[in-house]
Design a protein around this nucleic acid. Structure first.
Length: 257
DNA sequence: ATGGCGGCTCGCAGCCGA
């Protein structure tokens, strides 16, 4: 069972890349973020023709998430229950007995921004919800763009990023709060090349110079983590013309679908 | 690194992302 997450930064623009990529990686489940599409514009037919069921929720211009699955997708839920949020950032479903949550955590903009306070409140709401969700679904996977680089080794130049959004202590504390629920960072279950990132700024030839951050993650519950056999960042798609600024993260589980 | 890119919008400049 292969799980993937990818912030596409506009599914309208990235759909051809997605359709090319699906048969190459052959993921069982794909979580997409920043689809930036209203539901009536979602390319359902093209994705179903590629062999995937799909659940999605979106809005114009910003945000928007989708779940693709080669297997039946049940118990679809949208948003964080009890957290009133006009921004479409969460969709969840059950696939082959695994509860899969697709999350697009707010960016936060800067530490003195109202958006930063929203980000921290949002992360607290996510944490509270996942605590409950884990009691209902011990086999839980939370994939998405967390907009948090958990440690300095997830940052190309930690000194340059001190005091910045994505690396601040409150954000990293929120990340630790998620782990404390009984979730594990699948990427760190394995030996990994140093300077492995999942996002690179479009500017300054940042990708070519590998000036990136690791902010896209696959968290697996304690019940699921022992089944994980690999977790990698798939950089190939970031090398294409007109790429997303994010690369997909892919985890393999030794469980049958 | 603090810009420089790229995506979006009843666009033609400004906002946002990260």
């Amino acid at each position: 069972m292969k799980l993937a997450t990818w912030n596409v930064n506009s599914l309208k623009v990235r759909l051809p890349q997605l359709l090319d990529w699906l048969p190459i990686q052959q993921p069982d489940v794909v979580c997409l973020q920043e689809t930036k599409l209203e539901d009536h514009n979602f390319p359902r037919a093209a994705i179903e023709a590629a062999g995937y069921q799909v659940a999605f929720v979106g809005q114009k211009t910003y945000n928007g998430v989708a779940l693709l699955s080669r297997h039946p997708l049940t118990e679809v839920s949208i948003g964080i229950p009890g957290f009133d949020d006009p921004q479409q950032r969460v969709i969840a479903a059950t696939v082959a007995g695994i509860r899969v949550v697709c999350a697009y955590v707010p960016n936060g903009q800067s530490l003195d921004s109202d958006k930063y306070l929203y980000k921290l409140a949002w992360l607290q709401a996510l944490t509270n919800w996942l605590r409950d969700e884990l009691t209902r679904h011990p086999k839980l996977a939370v994939l998405g763009d967390y907009n948090i680089a958990p440690e300095d080794r997830d940052v190309h130049d930690p000194a340059a990023w001190v005091g910045s959004v994505l690396v601040s202590e409150p954000e990293r504390a929120a990340w630790q709060g998620l782990l404390a629920l009984g979730l594990q960072d699948s990427f760190r279950l394995f030996e990994q090349p140093e300077q492995t990132f999942s996002w690179w700024d479009y500017r300054m030839a940042a990708f070519r110079r590998n000036m990136g951050l690791r902010i896209d993650h696959i968290l697996l519950s304690d019940a699921l983590a022992p089944t994980c056999t690999a977790c990698v960042v798939d950089k190939d798609i970031r090398k294409l013309e007109r790429p997303s600024d994010h690369a997909p993260v892919v985890a393999e589980l030794a469980v049958s679908a």
